[in-house]
Amino acid sequence: MPSAWRKLRRRILTPSTSETLLEKRGFHRKTPAAQQLLETVGERFLEGYGYAMEARDTGSAENLLEGVPIRFRGFAYEGAGMGFAMLDGLPLSGSGSVARFLAGRGADHVYMVYIGVGWAMARLPRFRWPDIDALDPLLRWLVLDGYGFHQAYFRTARYVHEQYRDPAFPWPAHDSPSYAGRAIDQGIGRALWFVGGTDADLVATMIEKFPESRRSDLYSGAGLAATYAGGVDEAELRAFWERAGSHRAMVAQGSAFAAEARERAGLPVVHTELATRVFCGMTPAQAARVTQEVRPAGPVPGALPAYEVWRQAIADRFTNVGGC
């Protein structure tokens, strides 16, 4: 594809960075520093998306992604995951981009790439959705996490304030369709960290307005975002931990997932170490090791998908942390 066409494709298909401004989204602005952090996350996400849109191949996008600062590189890979999924879903753009991306450096960022695929799913017509069955059967639920984040981020009134939940979401994989709403809630919980502007007290208040049956997954997602994205000090993290009450083990589970994502990709940051110490009582490397130790090696018995069995096993390892 000629370079001029790829540049035009990027310009046409990449959303404006103004879409990531907290004022534009109507999100809470806690402090100038927190606002700058969250808006930079959005900018870096779109940067990665743009790299995918303009890339000659996945390798050329990877070279650019590796130049993004460590703190934000995972978000750029997430954006690239969305970009390559969009290209796979658009007419005349070919297919297999996500698979090739995951066969390269994207493999180290698989969690973020899958979440990015979920963003694309939220923007593509259903008949153009990715082949979910072709993705890792354990991790593919992260696609719905990404879908939930997108909906809460861009359709905040409906998904956050009105607490909308599709009772029959058309999960295009052939396993546990009834679990789809829970996976989406985990993404909504992550988005609440952005909607609330990293104000931990406000995020907890928003979660507590949801039905009790949904709060565990929402707290898990928010714990993941607090650990991966940051934006709070130790006192705020401890206050959020206290507010989580009976859901603290799931906050720790989300935090451990974030630690695993950063450790696997080689993207250590100070705020992740602070968050895992508060939420998990250990270092990011130790928290990541917990996720690896209890990870299912294949299908599991029972009605729950292996992904949820994995999450519960992680949470169980943290039931005695800080009074869980």
Rank of each mutant, 00 (worst) to 15 (best):
H161T: 13
H161G: 07
Q163N: 05
Q163C: 11
Y164E: 12
R165Q: 13
D166I: 01
D166K: 00
P167E: 10
A168L: 00
F169T: 01
F169R: 01
P170Q: 05
A173R: 11
H174L: 14
S176L: 02
A180P: 01
A180G: 03
R182L: 06
G189P: 02
R190K: 12
R190L: 04
L192P: 00
W193F: 10
W193S: 14
F194G: 01
G196Q: 11
G197Q: 10
G197V: 09
T198D: 11
T198E: 10
D199S: 14
D201F: 03
L202M: 12
V203S: 12
I207D: 09
I207F: 05
E208K: 13
K209N: 12
E212V: 13
R214G: 05
R214L: 06
L218M: 08
G223A: 01
L224I: 02
L224D: 01
L224Q: 04
A225Y: 07
A225M: 14
A226S: 09
Y228G: 04
Y228W: 12
G231R: 08
G231D: 12
V232Q: 15
E234D: 08
A235D: 15
A235C: 06
L237S: 05
A239M: 11
W241D: 12
E242P: 01
R243I: 13
A244V: 07
A244Q: 05
S246A: 15
S246V: 13
A249V: 02
M250Q: 10
V251K: 06
A252T: 11
A252G: 09
Q253M: 06
G254W: 05
F257P: 04
A258K: 07
A259I: 09
R262I: 06
R264L: 15
R264H: 09
A265Y: 03
A265C: 07
V269I: 09
V269W: 02
H271W: 07
H271D: 12
L274K: 05
T276E: 04
V278R: 06
F279E: 10
C280E: 10
M282V: 14
T283C: 05
T283G: 08
A285N: 00
Q286T: 11
A287M: 15
A287F: 09
